[in-house]
Design a protein around this nucleic acid. Structure first.
Lengths: 338, 338
DNA sequence: GGAAACAAGGAAAACGGTTGCCGTCACGGT
DNA sequence: ACCGTGACGGCAACCGTTTTCCTTGTTTCC
């Protein structure tokens, strides 16, 4: 409750402390040469009025707003969140505030946001999205630096930070090989989806390096549990034997796991299972808990924010930067020692 | 790429159009009385320089920033997102931009954000969080209006918009009664969690209105699938017969569903099953698809934002406002007609 | 033909802070 | 008595925009 008090201005503070505005400013910012007693008097007055300098007025002078815009090109989802959080974290440490703009897959809306952000004189922008595909740059010749996170810009001169999905897929295969599996199947999302293609290609390539190949062509479908269950049916109907399945997502892996159990195959004894995304909801509920590849999105967001800060300070990092993935081992690929 | 062009000022525009700054301002804002030709000339100059008025300078004069702060008291999660989105949507329609601040359960961090937001002269704030419990007000005598969304303020004079969880639980029970079930069990989250208590109490009360009661005391545990599976074991070990289970979350329901099937009970023929949250990932992957109660969080966020806008315009809505839940029927409570 | 009304646009004062420059005062040295 | 020197703070310009008031011409009307 409590009725709304007006914002105090520095003039109020100066008056209360019995000094001029300029002096008050210097006292609060540690500039100029003032008697310690004066400085304290001004500070006390500011405290008493709960004075907070008007950031807009201040930036009018400094030319910087200590503000960045974060634009999600499509709706905010499971993947954008950690990126946002990582970025927010890194930026907060640099005392910057974040404008959140949800593009909702609407180019008009997106352009509107870019305009608003520019009129608010953000020091920079981060663009993110739900898929890892390249997208058209958000604008040309923008007066502030832009970093693309998770999603990447079609212009190779722009700065993009993307997960190293190929590296992640290689790690998955290497882990399966390391636990002694060689007859590996791959079940993943829709083929028109960039992530599905990249991961499948990398897995195939990594196997080839050891003179191996997938026991069957990659099964492209959807990202859901339902598809995982269906795919197991397809796999069992075929004549290829397999002792491991590398799945394009944890949801698929979960479906695969359930279907394998229903078909009487034990995980991991008969079939080792590895997912992708390391989504706790799935990895924990899976029976047994699921080994997975973590995209490290929060780190990616942080990294993107750091590059943006650097660019704002005059040291841009143009180009595409791959952010490493991480293997998280659980019981679906290893029987715990008794 | 393209090198960063400086931001054009209205003085640049005025010079290019050959008028004074005042006139340029009037031309762009449709104020004053100007010849149509002059107006066009200025507009053209602005376009040519891609001029966007400096929002900071502008708000210096108007006293409004058309900006609000959104503070999540704990980490942004599955529940905050839709609230954020709904709010962002409603605010965007009012041409307001949103500062995102992630409090991370840290009161210090939270207070820091409040200060920053005030110094940025936001027109208002929305506070949200991961739980529906009441929390200490974010500040006393703040100079701008505050609305609590999802979470609520302990001060009853503050404006809070919360989901009507009790109403949702009643709807769940009513639906089960409507499909002919009377021997209902309830499995839910931890008892120290406000949502779990409220929902259990409302379900019990609604049954009592029909002279019924739960077949066993509510089973309090965790919000996870794992707990859902365990709870079914407990339920089957007891001697109470049941023909329906109302679960405190979709994750619990999913676990319950899997365990029931494993135990040879058919859903929905033998046991009807209803969840809470209407989380697509769970409701869709569940076999069969899960009936659930939708908290309508996006609507809640929108509603909170609208109240904030009203408060900013001088019409506050103090007090606690319950936002209705919605029943979404799927096959776990109804056998589809052939 | 002259006063009055009106259209068009310029000059300047805000808005809230920051900062460079200058004036004043006390003090010490010659 | 005079000058030089720091220490301390005030004054005013400036950041970019909006808005109020004025100053011009030009019409209009009696």
């Amino acid at each position: 409750m409590g009725k709304l008090e007006r914002h105090a201005t520095i003039a109020d503070v100066a008056a209360l402390a019995g000094v001029s505005v300029g002096t008050a400013s210097k006292a609060l910012n540690g500039r100029g040469s003032l008697r310690e007693e004066t400085r304290m008097r001004v500070r006390e007055a500011a405290r008493q009025l709960s004075f907070e300098a008007n950031a807009g007025a201040r930036s009018l002078h400094s030319g910087r707003t200590y503000t960045v815009g974060m634009i999600t090109t499509d709706t905010i989802g499971r993947f954008s969140i950690p990126v946002l959080m990582g970025a927010e974290d890194a930026l907060g440490a640099g005392e910057m505030s974040v404008f959140l703009c949800d593009g909702r897959d609407d180019p008009i809306r997106e352009q509107y946001y870019v305009k608003t952000l520019l009129s608010r004189r953000v020091d920079g922008m981060i663009v993110t999205g739900r898929r890892t595909e390249a997208r058209a740059p958000i604008g040309a010749n923008l007066p502030v630096p832009v970093v693309y996170a998770f999603i990447s810009s079609a212009d190779p001169g722009d700065c993009s930070v993307v997960p190293d999905e190929a590296g992640g897929a290689r790690k998955a295969v290497e882990h399966l090989l390391a636990v002694g599996r060689t007859r590996i199947a791959h079940i993943t999302g829709p083929e028109h989806h960039n992530s599905a293609r990249v991961r499948a290609a990398a897995a195939t390539e990594r196997l080839a390096e050891d003179g191996l190949s997938l026991v069957a062509p990659p099964l492209f479908g959807g990202w859901s549990e339902v598809w995982g269950r269906q795919a197991v049916g397809i796999l069992l109907a075929g004549r290829a034997e397999f002792d491991a399945v590398f799945c394009g997502s944890d949801q698929i892996a979960r479906g695969v796991c359930d279907a394998l159990r229903a078909a009487g195959r034990r995980v991991p004894q008969d079939v080792a299972l590895i997912g992708f995304d390391n989504w706790d909801v799935m990895t924990e509920a899976c029976q047994p808990p699921l080994t997975s590849i973590d995209l490290n999105l929060e780190g990616l967001g942080r990294s993107a924010a750091e590059m943006l800060l650097a660019a704002i300070n005059g040291s841009p990092s143009p180009g595409r930067h791959a952010h490493p993935c991480r293997l998280v081992v659980r019981e679906s690929t290893t029987v715990p020692l008794p």
